[in-house]
Structures are given as structure tokens and as C-alpha cells.
């Protein structure tokens, strides 16, 4: 395959995962927030923070203030618009899907026909149904359908795509994006709501977060079978339980496995091993909230580095666009 295509196939994997993860996140948090749990200390704007944005700034663009209780309905609408339907938003499902299609178009010669077709169906579905934010009644259905269609693409890839550089880079992109999203969710939705000095970490909210990650049942399995003592919690599980496909450990294992066959694998693997080492260093249950926060910051920085190494190591020159 062309050296230039590395970037596109890698991003294809990342955007596909981002689309799926965002749809799951919207669904899970909508449930949580609509129920108005007494213990929820965060509101809709937190979703923007998860995506790595400054929620106050984004909402100011809509003429809204994040803390204003009188604007709750408008805030929900604005956040949903920004996460799903806005074409100006860099993080919306609609934008991610356009990027997905753009990258697919650029490397179509590497994609099996069935995958190309599933990508088209996904794109036309999103471009048709995500023109404005869905109502609460329709939201669940819509997000589930987007997730389902993402899974269709992945299923097709799994059954028909040649195992080679393109497949490895696609898989790598997906799992790096997933590790990125999981750590951001943990960072914003769990840690930022805890007191820095609080040692005993509360559990209440995690069920909804596990829901977003499709991991409630396997978490219960983990508690019943693997946990060492009562202190084992969702944070350990999400970071280091490598049997769970949305744990950060699992993602890094997949990244390492995918990188093995690539021409620049030594330098990539060096970075992955550093990340894996962070997670295996010590029992995570022993870490204080502050230490956990630091750990997640380190993981996030490592992911960014790895992304740059991947593209920098293989892309020989910046991509030129020809008219």
C-alpha cells in the first residue's frame, strides 16, 4: 500500500470508533440525566468536556451559561446539537461521519466492496438523520442505530478484509481511539467530580458509565470472580481488566498486536510498552484520587505521542491536495 495511505486508513479506524463511542456516550448519559439521579453532580455540559472541549465556551456560542438552571432545556438541546448534528462542531457524529467518508473515499482501493457499501449506508443514514438533534423520544433509537451500523462495518471488515498493513492500521486506529475515549470519560465523569482527598471512591455513577461502554454484565462477572477484595472498583476494571474489550489494557494489547507486523513496529511498540507498563506498575486500588488523575494524564499524553509516532514514522511528507 502507498505510504500516503497510512494516515487515511488509521483515521478511518479512529473515526469509526469515535462515531460508535459518541453514540454510546450520548445514550448512556441521556438515561442518567433524564432520570435526574440525586447523586448526579454533573449536567449536560460535562459531555462537551469529555470530548476535550471547553463547555462554557461552546455554550457561550449558543448564548447559554452552563450553570443557569433556567436554561436547562436549551442547554440539553445545544449539547446534543454539538455532539450529534452540528456540521460546525469538530466532535459531532455528523462531522466524524463526513471525515470517515472522506478517508474511505481516499483509500477506496484498499477497502473490500462490502465494507465500502456498509460505510456508504452508515454515511447516508447519518447525513439524513443527524441534520438536527433528535428529540428525547427519538434519541435512543437513533444512537442505537448508529452504533449498530458501525458494528456492521466492523463485522464486514472482520469477515472479508485482507489481513495486512491496511487491516492492522485500521484496527490500531480503532483501539487507540477507544483507549482515548475511555480515559477521557473516566477523567471527566468520574475523577473531576471526586474530592482530591477522598480515598474511598463512591460507586454509584459507574453503572451508567459502564452502560455507555457496554460493560455492566462483564463488570459484575469481574466483581464476582476476579476482584481482590471489596475495594476493587470500576476504575481498576476499566483501566486494567484486559479481558474486557473496552478496557484500556485490552486496547493497548490490540494496538501492540496490530503494530507487530508494521514496518516501523520497533518504535511503535516501544511507545505501546510504555503505556502498558503504566497500567501494570502497581495495584491501581492503592492509588489516591490525585495519583489516579496523574496516571490518566500520563496515559492521555502517551496516546497523543503514539498517534504522532504512527503518522510521523510512516508519512514521509505532508499530504498534498491536487485539484
Amino acid at each position: 500500500m502507498l505510504a500516503r495511505s497510512v494516515e487515511n486508513i488509521f483515521w478511518l479506524g479512529r473515526y469509526l470508533e469515535r462515531l460508535d463511542d459518541t453514540a454510546r456516550l450520548v445514550n448512556a448519559t441521556s438515561h442518567l440525566l433524564i432520570d435526574s439521579h440525586k447523586d448526579t453532580e454533573f449536567g449536560w455540559p460535562v459531555l462537551l468536556d469529555v470530548m476535550g472541549l471547553d463547555s462554557a465556551q461552546v455554550l457561550a456560542g449558543y448564548g447559554l451559561q452552563p450553570q443557569n438552571p433556567a436554561q436547562l432545556a436549551q442547554i440539553e438541546q445545544a449539547v446534543m446539537s454539538y455532539l450529534t448534528s452540528s456540521s460546525d462542531s469538530p466532535v459531532s457524529i455528523r462531522t466524524a461521519c463526513s471525515q470517515l467518508k472522506y478517508n474511505a473515499r481516499t483509500i477506496r482501493q484498499l477497502l473490500p466492496r462490502d465494507m465500502w457499501e456498509e460505510l456508504n449506508k452508515l454515511d447516508s443514514f447519518v447525513q439524513q438523520h443527524c441534520l438536527k438533534p433528535a428529540s428525547r423520544q427519538q434519541r435512543y433509537q437513533l444512537m442505537t442505530e448508529i452504533s449498530r451500523r458501525c458494528q456492521m462495518v466492523i463485522g464486514t471488515v472482520d469477515s472479508v478484509m485482507l489481513r495486512g498493513d491496511a487491516f492492522d492500521l485500521f484496527t490500531l486506529g480503532r483501539h487507540l481511539e477507544r483507549a482515548d475515549m475511555v480515559t477521557r470519560i473516566m477523567d471527566v465523569m468520574v475523577l473531576q467530580t471526586l474530592q482530591p482527598t477522598q480515598l474511598k471512591r463512591p460507586r454509584f455513577r459507574w453503572i451508567s458509565i459502564l452502560n455507555a461502554l457496554g460493560g455492566v454484565e462483564s463488570y459484575h462477572y469481574y466483581l464476582a470472580n476476579n476482584a481482590t477484595g471489596a475495594d476493587a472498583d470500576a476504575i481498576d476494571y476499566l483501566l486494567s481488566y484486559a479481558d474486557f474489550p473496552r478496557s484500556v489494557s485490552y486496547c493497548f494489547n490490540r494496538v501492540a498486536a496490530s503494530a507487530k507486523g508494521l514496518p516501523d513496529s520497533p518504535v511503535i511498540l516501544q511507545h505501546v510498552h510504555q503505556l502498558q507498563h503504566l497500567l501494570s506498575r502497581q495495584p491501581l486500588t492503592d492509588l489516591s484520587t490525585v495519583q489516579l488523575h496523574e496516571l490518566i494524564d500520563q496515559i492521555q499524553a502517551g496516546i497523543i505521542n503514539l498517534h504522532q509516532v504512527l503518522l510521523g514514522a510512516n508519512v514521509t511528507e505532508p499530504q498534498q491536495l491536487t485539484a
Binding site: M1, L2, A3, R4, S5, V6, R108, Q109, L110, L111, R113, W116, D165, L262, P263, N314, T316, E317, Q320, T322
Partner: peptide
């Protein structure tokens, strides 16, 4: 390109060296 299983190149993916044309591939 997809149907024939060959690469789809733009001009900057190709270069001329030693009286031959080369494709800049990942490998």
C-alpha cells in the same frame, strides 16, 4: 484500482530515479 487490486497513485506517490519509476509504498 479496487477491482483490479492495484494501487491508486497520485503524482506525488511516484518518483523517477535511476531511469525507473518508483512507487512510494509503506514498505
Amino acid at each position: 484500482a479496487q477491482q483490479m487490486g492495484v494501487e491508486l497513485a497520485e503524482n506525488h506517490d511516484l518518483l523517477v530515479e535511476d531511469d525507473k519509476v518508483w512507487l512510494k509504498s509503506l514498505r
